[in-house]
Structures are given as C-alpha cells and as structure tokens.
Amino acid sequence: MTEPLFEVEDLTMTLRAGHGKTILRSVSVGASAGEAIGLIGESGAGKSTTARALLGMTPPEAAVHGTVRVLGTDVLSLRRSRLQRFRAENVALIAQDPRASVNPMHGIEVFLTEAMRANRNLSKAEARRRAAAALEQVGLDPEKVLRSYPHEVSGGLQRVVIAAAVAVEPRLLIADEPSTALDVASQATVISLLRRVARRSGAGLVLVTHNIEVAASVCDRLVVMRAGSVVETGTTDQVLRRPLAEYTRALIEATRAVSGATDRDDFPGNATESAHA
C-alpha cells in the first residue's frame, strides 16, 4: 500500500446555533494515493460536509472535533496562509452547479488561469497555454472557449470547471455532485470524463453523489453515509453485491426502481475490481 491520500478520523461537527444539531457523527474514512472514493447517501447525510472538510472548509457555525489528514497535513489545524498554500498545491474542487461555480462577471480565461497565475506565478501566456491544453483534454475548443463568457458556454460549462481543476495538477480531486445539475446527456459525458482525467493524472478522487450507479461507475471504493454517520465502507463490488447494512440495500433497490434496469451485467460496478484497500 502506498502513502495514504487522506485519513479522516472520528470527525464530529455540531452546530452551535439552535439546538446543537449534530451534522457529522464520528466519521472515519481513509483512502490511499490514486484511489477513487465515492461518498454516497441522501441529502443531509453529511457527505458534502465530509468532502469539504478535506479542503479545510468547515461550516463557520459548527464546533468541529476529530482530525482530517490529507497527504500528511492536518488541514483543520492550518492557519489561513498555510491552508491557502495547501489548497493551491494539492486539491481541486468541482461543485454541483457549473453555472454557480464560475463567476459570471469575468471571462472563462480568467477562471481557468487565475489559480495558476496567483499560486504559481505563471506568466499570462504560459497559464493560457496550460489552460488551452486542459480544455483540449476535456474536449472543448480552446480558442473559442477562452474568449467566451460563462453564459455563452452553457452546455460545456461543467467541462470547463473540470478543465480548471485538472489544469492545476492536483493530487486530490473532489467532485461534489458534479452531474446532478446537468441534463441527462451531459451527465454521462461529465462522469466518464471525470473518470478519465482522474485516471490519467493519477490524482485521487472523492466523488460525492446520491446516485449509487454514478458512484459505482467511477469509484474503487464506496462509503455509504446516513444522517451524519458512516453506515458502511467497502470496495464497490462488495458494497453492491453483498451490502451489509439494511440502509445500503434500500438505497440500491431505490436506484434500480428508478432506473428500471436490473440487468446485473450492465451494472457499471462490475468493471471495477481493482485496488482493494
């Protein structure tokens, strides 16, 4: 086993306001380098909160206990400037709604190049060159897209966001419901694209989704969460074929009921049998 990608140990978060609602309850998750992990569960399960903790982002109104170690760094104890450097060098986030992820007031070029320019002191020309290369990787026409504004590339905007993420060569990609806000056709493209870029770059991937099939098609291991706790962890195959928890079984049933397809061979989880933790 290689060096650990991240280790979340006993992470608990309680909202200070109101009645002290607990949003995470002693969550422990880990992954090794290059692995793709799926965090699945319904909304409110705490999967987004867990994923964001990997970036050192915690809700301002929450009391936080436990440790989050990413690539050997204890991110929750970092001061602001160190945290900034940690994020700049190691991680990239892909959020749910691409239209909300890109500042509508600036051009796409600014979005793609600003992290490289600010964090690595790249020249405008060099940052632009790398941005163009990243756009090609995600199948967009660099010349056209670099000159556009966000509202002009409505269809391919999530691919722009993915390009921006891979352009900074992160060691950990965090995708938070990356396909949920998209139409059905783009969902498939974005998910397969995500799998491809993560594999090619060798970066680890944390995929947050409520869709178990999406997770299964991309991830080596799955973490099932419910109401702030981890219900079950295992390889994708284990979780899908021999779910231990009643809740996981219900989740799988629900997905099948909606998709209508119960053909086991077509189930994308079958493709991933590698990388047991």
Binding site: G44, Q96, T180, V184, V214, T255, V258, S259
Partner: peptide, 15 residues
C-alpha cells in the same frame, strides 16, 4: 453506461 438519477436533490444551503 447507465446514469439515471434519483429525483434531483440538492443539499440544503449551508449558510
């Protein structure tokens, strides 16, 4: 591949 989804859910805003 099959990417049908559960009824579109969004996590509640965290702010």
């Amino acid at each position: 591949m099959n990417t049908a989804i559960l009824p579109g859910k969004k996590d509640p805003p965290r702010r």
